[in-house]
């Protein structure tokens, strides 16, 4: 079975990835909806910024996060002074890196889901007495649920695999910021590492597959509820 150090890496990976998904979900829903439903000044610029982490080398993303959120960075300084939160060399920094890198995948999926919701269903809800927020939570969001779940699964899987940006901002501290990919990389530095990291490699595959299956099950359940066809 897994050694205590490997279990630590698994634990850190799960905490970091779940935190990343939980923190980015409200923003993912907000911006996914905005991009699907609204026209506003700077929309394409905003999209470009969101999608940058998808195409930039993760190390560059990590570098930028370090500049922004480092002890002397202007956001990092404020966080430290106001809330006593330090992200550098901390699992929270690893979660931030994972969230930023996986955010485009989440937003893309949620945006597509909201685009697929018939605008007239929202209009029907409004004429029946529902305000904007009410219509959003009682009609739009439940109907976009599958896409939201799919976005979370994708973001979770991407967070699990995050390496470059994590190493830049959170370092590689055993038991604190050493996630599974970092652990495997670390093992390979020493002789016999290929064999020793086998266990965690298998665990990584299992966790990723479990996330995919869970997403699929939730999606199928949602689809069944909506009925097979709507001719």
């Amino acid at each position: 079975m897994l050694s205590p150090a490997e279990l630590d890496a698994l634990r850190v990976s799960l905490i970091v990835s779940l935190t990343a998904v939980a923190v980015s979900l409200p923003f993912g829903v907000l911006f996914g909806w905005l991009l699907a439903r609204r026209q506003f000044f700077g929309k394409s610029a905003l999209e470009t910024v969101f999608n940058l982490p998808l195409v930039m080398p993760p190390v560059v993303t990590g570098y930028l996060l370090l500049v922004l959120f480092g002890r002397n960075g202007w956001l990092g300084g404020l966080l430290d002074r106001w809330f006593g939160v330090r992200l550098v060399f901390d699992w929270k920094g690893a979660a931030l890196a994972a969230a930023v890198v996986s955010f485009p995948l989440m937003v893309r999926s949620i945006r597509l889901a909201f685009s697929a919701v018939d605008v007239r269903l929202e209009q029907a809800a409004r004429t029946l007495g529902a305000g904007r927020l009410d219509a959003f939570f009682s009609v739009s969001l439940p109907l976009a649920r599958n896409g939201v779940v799919a976005g979370c699964v994708l973001a979770f899987a991407r967070s699990l695999g995050e390496f470059g940006a994590t190493v830049m901002i959170a370092g590689n501290i055993a038991g604190r910021t050493r996630t599974m990919p970092l652990f495997i990389y670390n093992e390979l530095e020493a002789p016999g590492g290929l064999e020793r990291s086998m266990g965690l490699v298998i665990v990584s595959i299992i966790v990723a597959a479990a996330a995919l299956v869970l997403g699929e099950v939730l999606e199928r359940r949602g689809r069944r509820r909506l009925g097979a066809s709507d001719a």
């Binding site: 018939d118 269903l121 004429t127 029946l128 007495g129 305000g131 909506l226 009925g227």
Partner: peptide, 16 residues
């Protein structure tokens, strides 16, 4: 939502 105007669409638009 404040007009009290009921609307029935051509293709019903029931909440699925």
């Amino acid at each position: 939502e404040r007009r009290h105007v009921g609307l029935v669409f051509q293709d019903h638009c029931l909440f699925p």
